[in-house]
């Protein structure tokens, strides 16, 4: 990671061919695994879901690092900080919605 990723604008690093090819290859692998598992039906449902989510999170991180060149350097401090803030917001939004609606459905079925 030392010889590439030169920066001309604050917070906007440039990549290299090697970086993009690495990102592409990792993305292909992380796409092939969940599609392969679901299309072959080799694993149990719970295990498949865990694997799909794991590969999705992995591929998002791969693309953030290799395509969007996010890193922990000081020029990128605000890009990364704001992104972490949004990840927290998104987590609250999605987990909160599912949680609330699940309890709502549960209470309706219980006839309260």
């Amino acid at each position: 990671m030392a010889d590439h990723g030169e920066t001309t604008h604050a917070g906007a690093a440039h990549g290299s061919v090697r970086e993009y090819v690495t990102g592409l290859l990792l993305s292909i692998v992380l796409t092939a695994i969940p599609f392969g598992v679901v299309m072959s039906g080799a694993l149990a449902e719970g295990l498949s879901i865990a694997l799909i989510l794991l590969c999705a999170v992995g591929q998002v991180l791969v693309q953030l690092v290799f395509f969007l060149h996010m890193n922990t350097s000081s020029e990128q401090l605000w890009n990364t900080t704001s992104a972490i803030f949004v990840v927290v917001l998104v987590a609250i939004l999605i987990v909160g919605s599912i949680w609330i609606m699940h309890h709502l459905n549960h209470n309706m079925l219980m006839g309260h």
Binding site: T8, H9, A10, G11, A12, W78, N79, S82, A83
Partner: peptide
């Protein structure tokens, strides 16, 4: 560094 500001705003 005008370009960096624009890219950050777009981010």
């Amino acid at each position: 560094d005008y370009g960096g500001d624009v890219v950050f705003g777009f981010w």
